[in-house]
């Protein structure tokens, strides 16, 4: 089954997070930035978790980050993911600061390790475009093999 056709749970978006998911449909990753303390925030909130400031502005993230951890999921927690198992999820620390959990795209033979430089890779998953990630350079490109 193609990843685009998975029957998996959709995001439970709210009025506040709708701008994030609308941007995701256009292939962009948006985060909030607090006007009071200047820090970047993910996931979107109604208040800055660092200073409780309420003036939060949307901005496009650079789409670059570092892989803090990952797991190859053989037995998914939701049966909708079974058709593509095993697949990879990871924690990506965005260049702007916050960390998000995301789907990690991997080519066959693409080795992966904690600390890898990651790049936003918007992907049609289960009928909607999600801000997935892939390594900035693949294993093949790095090693020339």
């Amino acid at each position: 089954m193609d990843i685009a056709d998975l029957k998996v749970p959709a995001p439970t978006m709210t009025a506040l997070t709708t701008p994030f998911w609308n941007a995701a449909q256009q292939g962009r990753l948006t985060i909030q930035r607090c006007e009071a303390c200047g820090k970047a925030i993910f996931y979107p909130r109604g208040v800055c978790p660092h200073c409780w400031g309420t003036a939060l502005q949307w901005e496009d993230a650079s789409g670059r980050g570092l892989l803090k951890s990952f797991s190859v999921v053989h037995r998914p927690g939701h049966p909708g993911w079974l058709p593509i198992a095993p697949y990879t999820v990871g924690l990506v620390e965005l260049a702007e600061g916050p960390t998000m959990l995301s789907f990690i795209l991997r080519d066959p033979g693409d080795e992966i390790a904690v600390g890898a430089a990651m790049q936003l890779a918007p992907t049609l998953i289960g009928g909607r475009i999600l801000p997935a990630f892939r390594q900035q350079t693949t294993f093949h490109e790095r090693t020339g093999k």
Partner: peptide, 27 residues
């Protein structure tokens, strides 16, 4: 938030969360 921002990416349930913690410790 965990339902909105983790589950849609394929990370349902505690197993995956603890796998991420374990991988980070090994690394």
């Amino acid at each position: 938030p965990i339902r909105e921002f983790d589950v849609p990416f394929g990370a349902s349930g505690a197993n995956i969360s603890y796998a991420l913690l374990m991988q980070a410790h090994m690394a």
